[in-house]
C-alpha cells in the first residue's frame, strides 16, 4: 500500500472521530480504497469507515492487505498532523508495520513514524449499507452536536422522534426534562444549515446518551450529518466527506422493558 493524503489532518480527523468509541480496528485495503468496521466492547455501537481513492492525492494498493492497529497508538502518531503537511501511508507486502511519512516541503521538514501492526480477530457484522429506513434526516452537524451536548446533560437516555412537523430530540431526567424541535428549513445563504426530512412513517426511538456523545466527536469530518431511522432497528449516524467516503455509526436502540 502507498497512499498519500495531500493534507495529513484528513486522516487525523477520521481516526480521532472514532478512537474513543472502539479500541482497535482492521483497515482492509484494496484497489477500491480503505474500508474498516469495528464494534465497541458492549456491542451497542458499530463504526464503519470508508476512504476511497478519491480522498487521496495518490493511491496505490497492489494486493489486498489488512492493517490491524490499536487506535490509541495511531492517534498518538497523528498528533503530528497539520494542514501544511502531507501524509503517506506505506505498508510492505508482508505487513508487520505501518509507516507514516509526514512531509512539509515548504519547511523542508519530514517526519517518519512506524507503527507495529496487530493481529485482530474481530468478528465482522454483516451490515447492509443499502438498508432501507423509514426516516432520513439531513441536518447541520454543528446543530446536532449542540443539541446532543445540551440534552444529554439531563439524562442517560436520549429520545428521537420524527413526525411530519419535524424532528424532536428529548430527554427526561429525574429532576429536569428537555426538548428540542427542529423543523425543515432551507437557508439559501448557507446550505449547511439546511434541514430536510424524508419519511415513510413516524419513528420514536431512544438511545443511550453516552454513545451519542461519542458519535458527535466525528462532526469535524463534515458540516452535515445524515440520520437514518427505522422502528426497532439500529439507527445510522453518518458523516460524509467532501471527497467521498466517510464515517458511519450504527447504534442499537433502547427498549421499553
Amino acid at each position: 500500500l502507498e497512499a498519500k493524503f495531500d493534507d495529513s489532518t484528513i486522516f487525523k480527523k477520521i481516526i480521532d472521530s472514532f478512537k474513543d468509541s472502539v479500541t482497535q480496528i482492521n483497515f482492509v485495503c484494496s484497489e477500491s480504497g480503505i474500508e474498516a468496521q469495528a464494534i465497541d466492547d458492549s456491542r451497542v455501537l458499530l463504526v464503519t469507515v470508508s476512504i476511497p481513492p478519491s480522498c487521496f492525492e495518490s493511491y496505490r494498493c497492489d494486493r489486498p492487505t489488512t492493517i490491524g492497529v490499536y487506535l490509541a497508538s495511531l492517534a498518538k502518531l497523528l498528533k503530528s498532523a497539520n494542514t501544511n503537511s502531507s501524509l503517506t501511508l506505506y505498508v510492505a507486502d508482508k505487513p508487520d508495520e505501518l509507516l507514516l511519512l509526514f512531509e512539509e516541503p515548504k519547511n523542508q521538514k519530514s517526519m517518519e513514524y512506524k507503527l507495529k501492526l496487530v493481529d485482530i480477530t474481530a468478528d465482522m457484522l454483516e451490515v447492509d449499507s443499502d438498508m432501507k429506513s423509514d426516516v432520513t434526516v439531513e441536518m447541520s452537524s454543528v446543530e446536532f452536536t449542540k443539541t446532543v451536548r445540551d440534552l444529554t446533560q439531563l439524562s442517560d437516555s436520549f429520545t428521537v422522534s420524527v413526525t411530519k412537523d419535524g424532528i424532536v430530540f428529548s430527554v427526561q431526567g429525574d429532576t429536569a426534562q428537555g426538548k428540542v424541535l427542529l423543523q425543515p428549513r432551507e437557508d439559501l445563504a448557507d446550505e449547511s444549515n439546511n434541514l430536510s426530512i424524508s419519511m415513510s412513517k413516524t419513528i420514536d426511538l431512544s438511545f443511550a446518551s453516552k454513545y451519542l456523545l461519542d458519535i458527535i466527536k466525528a462532526a469535524s469530518i463534515s458540516n452535515k450529518i445524515f440520520l437514518k431511522f427505522s422502528d426497532d432497528t439500529p439507527a445510522l449516524f453518518e458523516f460524509k466527506m467532501e471527497k467521498g467516503g466517510g464515517v458511519g455509526f450504527y447504534l442499537a436502540p433502547k427498549y421499553d422493558d
Binding site: 464494534i39 458492549s42 456491542r43 451497542v44 455501537l45 458499530l46 468478528d123 465482522m124 457484522l125 454483516e126 451490515v127 437516555s157 431512544s206 443511550a208 432497528t233 439500529p234 450504527y250 442499537a252 436502540p253 433502547k254 427498549y255 421499553d256 422493558d257
Partner: peptide, 14 residues
Amino acid sequence: KLRQSTLNAFFNKN
C-alpha cells in the same frame, strides 16, 4: 425503564 439492545440481534455475523 429502558433496556439496552445490542447490535447482534440485528446483524448477521460474518
